[in-house]
Design a protein around this nucleic acid. Structure first.
Length: 152
DNA sequence: GCCAACGTTGGC
DNA sequence: GCCAACGTTGGC
């Protein structure tokens, strides 16, 4: 089982949107970056991910989600009306993928980006690397544990 | 295949 | 709103 970190802009899709969705389930889509796409395609049911709020007043980890199914084609790429439309992605040969997730837990308190930056054991966290812009990235088991323990 | 121009991301 | 960093595009 693998661990991940997924970013979302709360004005677009927040942890509360997921919490209020039916079954607390959602489909993570709209990723249009090949490296991120490759990470998505390597996800497996049961994988866990931190849900991260980006581009907002206080960026940070706000919850934990679980991958419920194998990744599947991102259909927003086929929809000309969608902001994520990509005419080069065809249903018979999809270029972009998304993944089904379910909320496991909304954290009682946000673990802020500042806190993450502060912890020496997280110096190698992809999120903190210079110039990082990926919307989804792997987290090691050790990092996962350290982050969860931050608020213990 | 190079690289300049451009668009996007995302923290501050 | 600024701007650094980075990916993508397209001319050559």
């Amino acid at each position: 089982m693998a661990y991940w970190l997924m970013k979302s802009e709360p004005t677009t899709y927040s942890i509360d949107d997921l919490a209020q969705a039916r079954g607390k389930k959602g489909f993570w889509d709209g990723v249009r970056n090949y490296q991120a796409r490759n990470f998505i395609r390597s996800m497996q049911p049961g994988d866990l991910a931190f849900f991260y709020h980006s581009s907002c007043k206080v960026p940070g980890i706000v919850g934990i989600v679980q991958v419920t199914q194998s990744p599947r084609p991102d259909e927003t790429a086929f929809d000309p009306a969608s902001a994520y439309f990509d005419p080069d992605s065809k249903p018979e040969n999809p270029r972009w993928f998304g993944v089904d997730i379910q909320l496991v837990e909304k954290l009682p308190e946000i673990i802020t980006l500042t806190e993450l930056r502060h912890h020496p054991a997280l110096s190698e966290l992809q999120l903190l690397k210079r110039g990082n812009r990926l919307s989804v990235m792997p987290v090691t088991k050790v990092e996962w544990r350290v982050i969860l323990d931050l608020h213990q």
